[in-house]
């Protein structure tokens, strides 16, 4: 068994002020551990995008029953150090209709080589429009470019309307 340490762990209702606290904690702890600034930047960038996604894409619930269900499945964010790797776990409830488009996005990103990802990133940046939720749809592309490998993800069905979406991103502490 190798060494395993939680850098940060959060479960509950996220808001901007909690996100600020989590991000400060990540910077502080990784700096304390003497992690390479470039690795810190990669982890920090992915953390911002994941936290932002939890905040923007978790459904609010339209009645008491839905709100209760959502309360039972809070947003989660964990960053762990496991030997030479950092693992970021993020999870939140998403609406059922978001699953297929998201799966397609993951599959497309996983199929692209580094140069193609860069090309896609530039193309999307030029065409980006800010959605009603304030996103530009670039977050997963940025994360894929940062880690240079597949993002692992899973969907767990809650009911016909909602699923729990979890993703895991692994960062090497050693730069290429």
């Amino acid at each position: 068994m190798g060494e395993s340490n939680d850098i940060v762990h959060y479960s509950g209702d996220l808001n901007k002020s909690e996100i600020d606290k989590i991000l400060s904690q990540i910077k502080e702890k990784l700096n304390e551990q003497g992690v390479d600034p470039q690795v810190i930047r990669r982890i920090y960038s992915a953390s911002v995008e994941c936290l932002d996604n939890i905040l923007k894409h978790t459904p609010k619930g339209s009645d008491e029953e839905e709100i209760n269900i959502l309360n039972n499945y809070p947003g989660k964010f964990t960053l762990k150090r496991e030997n030479e790797f950092f693992n970021l776990f993020a999870g939140n409830v998403i609406a059922e209709e978001c699953i297929e488009p998201l799966k397609t996005k993951f599959e497309v990103l996983a199929s692209l080589k580094s140069a193609n990802l860069m090309h896609l990133h530039k193309k999307k940046l030029l065409a980006a429009e800010i959605s009603e939720k304030g996103g530009a749809g670039l977050g997963l592309i940025i994360i894929s470019r940062l880690i240079g490998k597949k993002i692992k993800y899973d969907f767990e069905k809650i009911n016909n309307k909602f699923s729990y979406f979890a993703l895991r991103i692994e960062f090497s502490n050693i730069l290429d």
């Binding site: 920090y44 960038s45 932002d52 030029l126 429009e129 996103g135 530009a136 749809g137 670039l138 977050g139």
Partner: peptide, 12 residues
């Protein structure tokens, strides 16, 4: 020193 994906659109 850092900007998120939504900011990237406006920086461009």
């Amino acid at each position: 020193m850092y900007f998120n994906s939504s900011s990237a659109k406006f920086i461009s």
